[in-house]
């Protein structure tokens, strides 16, 4: 084979590989209806009749790293049958989309999630099927969820989070479709750890549980996320530590859906007085801890009215720490002034 011919073959081969295996953005897109023709523009928006801003923009880049990337637009916006379409109805998250659930081979839907929520403390109806008081305060899907995003993990060497190219290399040995490989990797590794950072979870819960009006209406006794922020766990979460428990770790029975959150008055709940220690004694947290370990007031605010004992105890340490360190710093500062101006004197008044 001449050198020229070999070079030609290499170039053709290279182009073939690039065209087939290069992870183009379009490979991921589920935009079969070309909805992004209009919806890629961020200004696509209006103020509706209730005075609420409706932003109709979809950021394609971010959508392509979301768990719904393979769901077609009409999979959720089921009432869109023609283009141009009429104003759309609110999305029903319980609708069956075109995704097939592989274990049952049935169309996928979030109906099971709804069943869990119906049994949870956040259900709009009580156990007798009657609407709860202040029903409008109880969350619906979008109160807690925006578009869920993949948080892939790298297991090789663990130098950085994200996708591990080394792992993908292994996948490529058997699997040929690049978008399948990346999606599968993203899906599995995202599910192997927290789907959201503890601080993001806390922010979601805070929208209701730190609202003083809501706290008062439902007689909740504490601003849950504010008081979480006062604890070691909350402070570590603020530094983006992912090893600390977030709201869901302590309020959901281990191994159950986070949507199955029960009232602390329910004896089956992990937050029930006698069960609380089970959350702490988890093998990943404080294994072997007793009931007494969890008997302290977890959501005590630094508040004189709510928790006077904790308040005075904390106040003592604040005074001790501040009262010691602040004068010390002041002395150091004065000493430095003297070093800066060794001969300076304040003239005496005559």
């Amino acid at each position: 084979m001449s050198l020229k011919r070999a070079a030609r073959l290499y170039i053709v081969g290279f182009i073939f590989i690039v065209l087939n295996f290069y992870p183009s953005k379009n490979l991921f897109s589920a935009d079969v209806g070309n909805c992004l023709l209009c919806h890629k523009y961020p200004g696509l928006s209006r103020i509706d009749e209730q005075g609420k801003m409706k932003l109709l923009y979809v950021n394609e880049d971010i959508f392509n790293i979301s768990v719904h990337l393979k769901v077609k637009c009409e999979g959720c916006h089921t009432d869109i049958k023609k283009i141009p379409h009429d104003p759309v109805n609110k999305v029903d998250c319980l609708v069956e989309c075109h995704i097939v659930e592989p274990s049952s081979e049935q169309k996928f839907s979030h109906k099971d999630v709804d069943n869990y929520v119906k049994k949870s403390v956040h259900a709009a109806l009580d156990k007798y099927g009657m609407p709860k008081k202040f029903k409008e305060d109880l969350p619906t899907c979008k109160n807690c969820h925006d578009e869920p995003l993949y948080r892939p993990l790298s297991f090789f060497k663990q130098v950085r989070p994200g996708i591990s190219e080394a792992a993908l290399g292994r996948c490529r040995v058997c699997h040929k479709k690049e978008d399948f490989i990346i999606r599968f990797y993203n899906h599995v590794t995202t599910r192997l750890h927290r789907t959201r950072n503890p601080i993001n979870i806390a922010e979601v819960c805070a929208r209701c549980h730190d609202d003083p009006l809501l706290v008062e209406r439902h007689n909740l006794g504490t601003r849950a996320v504010f008081s979480y922020g006062e604890t070691f766990h909350g402070k570590a979460a603020r530094f983006l530590d992912e090893r600390v428990p977030d709201c869901l770790d302590c309020h959901v029975n281990t191994g159950e859906s986070v949507h199955q959150m029960l009232s602390h008055k329910d004896s089956a709940a992990i937050t029930y007085r006698e069960n609380k220690y089970l959350a702490c004694s988890n093998i990943e947290c404080h294994p072997g801890t007793s009931q007494q370990f969890a008997s302290y007031k977890v959501h005590a605010e630094f508040n004189l009215d709510q928790s006077p004992v904790q308040y005075y105890f904390t106040l003592f340490f604040i005074i001790l720490t501040g009262g010691t360190l602040l004068p010390l710093m002041a002395i150091i500062f004065l000493d430095l002034i003297r070093r800066l101006f060794p001969d300076a004197v304040i003239p005496r008044r005559r």
Partner: peptide, 12 residues
């Protein structure tokens, strides 16, 4: 933006 499901991801 309250009630907006999809991400915006940038500022104008």
């Amino acid at each position: 933006i309250e009630g907006h499901f999809h991400h915006i991801g940038f500022d104008i």
